[in-house]
Design a protein around this nucleic acid. Structure first.
Ligand SMILES: [Mn+2]
Ligand SMILES: [Mn+2]
Ligand SMILES: [Zn+2]
Ligand SMILES: [Zn+2]
Lengths: 140, 140
DNA sequence: TGCTTATATTATAATCATTCTAATCTATAT
DNA sequence: ATATAGATTAGAATGATTATAATATAAGCA
């Protein structure tokens, strides 16, 4: 019951259960941003946790952490959802070869000015997706 | 058999069938860019065509038109795929209230310069997604 | 510390978009 | 006209996600 996530969870109105703490440790005890699909996370849980966590619990917890603002959902692919431990508004590279997301911090992109507006609507976010692929230029 | 799409299809190596011609007419006989999900298209076909077209055929045709370069697939939502009759590289507004895409032509956005590169990878596309929602500022 | 109850977890079934299958049909070349 | 490669079709299969409803547990209170 004594984890660095016990209070974090409780302060967000989530009961600190074994399963939630384990998932938080997997997601947040890392140096860099983590981009993952539910399946990625389920695999890690399986190889990493002594006790099994039901898939439904993994879905529930990830969605709850998203709702509470600790994760951000990203769609680049309609096959499955990706989630991101970097919840700020930021850009991405998407590697078409590996299907992996890479953060592209705002410092590497000039502020984007949209010179068009839609009546009655306000801008919620502006994000760039840079698709990349292997450079076979100088391969041969 | 005499449609403006008969030759277009044939010249792309697709046999001009009744179903494909009907789908092309629905998709391309319009003034503006059309953003649609498979379900949107299936609905239009149902209300619009005298003869029923099987859902599998709609999927097949849309995927084939995408492969041939007449449609572009867009992912903003993991629930379903969207397709776009504007196949150029361009930006979008996504209205979170209506779940509709709106083209944001390049002329309204300054060229985007990415000051970071990933070794061994080359940039395939750079596209901006602007999420918008109702402006309830001056609604009260 | 031990009950109570609101919440959470779980296995499993249901849903829904998409893809597959294999039977039937058709555009096109001969 | 005929043959055949390619297309359409209904329905089954798949796979991600969500719902269900029985069981377990965290937290508040006696
Ligand atoms: Mn979701
Ligand atoms: Mn697809
Ligand atoms: Zn990110
Ligand atoms: Zn578009």
């Amino acid at each position: 019951m004594n984890s660095k996530y016990t209070n974090k969870l409780r302060s967000s109105g989530m009961r600190p259960t074994r399963q939630r703490i384990k998932i938080c440790e997997i997601l947040f005890d890392r140096e860099h941003t983590f981009h993952f699909s539910i399946n990625d996370l389920a695999e890690i849980v399986k190889n990493n946790a002594k006790e099994k966590i039901a898939l439904a619990t993994i879905y529930n917890t990830v969605h709850l952490l998203t709702k509470k603002g600790y994760l951000k959902e990203i769609s680049i692919n309609s096959d499955k959802s990706y989630f991101d431990t970097n919840t700020s508004s930021h850009h991405h590279f998407f590697d078409e070869e590996t299907s992996k997301l890479i953060d592209l911090d705002n410092e590497y992109v000039d502020p984007i000015n949209i010179r068009k507006n839609i009546p009655g609507k306000k801008v919620k976010s502006i994000e760039v997706l840079v698709k990349i692929d292997n450079d076979n230029q100088n391969q041969k």
